[in-house]
């Protein structure tokens, strides 16, 4: 079973980061959220592995306050 890869994978990590941030330029907050949602769905399908997806979701959620708790 594949696991979530967390070592650096891009030849040029700065370029990847800037590409993501740049894609949001000039977008209103709502459109920006829509872009993120589409991007997540496209990439999740590209990965196509539910175990990896769930691992990534857990890693992404770590440290975020659960507003329902306490």
């Amino acid at each position: 079973m594949s696991r979530l890869l967390t070592q650096s994978r891009f030849a040029n990590p700065d370029e990847a980061f800037v590409a993501i941030v740049d894609a949001h330029r000039d977008l209103a907050p709502e459109a920006s959220a829509a872009l993120d949602a589409r991007l997540v769905l496209l990439l999740a399908n590209h990965i196509g592995d539910i175990a990896v997806l769930k691992e990534a979701l857990a890693a992404a959620r770590e440290g975020l306050a659960d507003s329902r708790a306490g």
């Binding site: 959220a33 829509a34 949602a37 589409r38 997540v40 769905l41 496209l42 399908n45």
Partner: peptide
């Protein structure tokens, strides 16, 4: 709502959606 509508938007173009 955002993810639901993102799926619907992408479904115009992509089979997976």
């Amino acid at each position: 709502i955002g993810y639901r509508n993102a799926v619907l938007d992408l479904s115009r173009r992509f089979d997976f959606a």
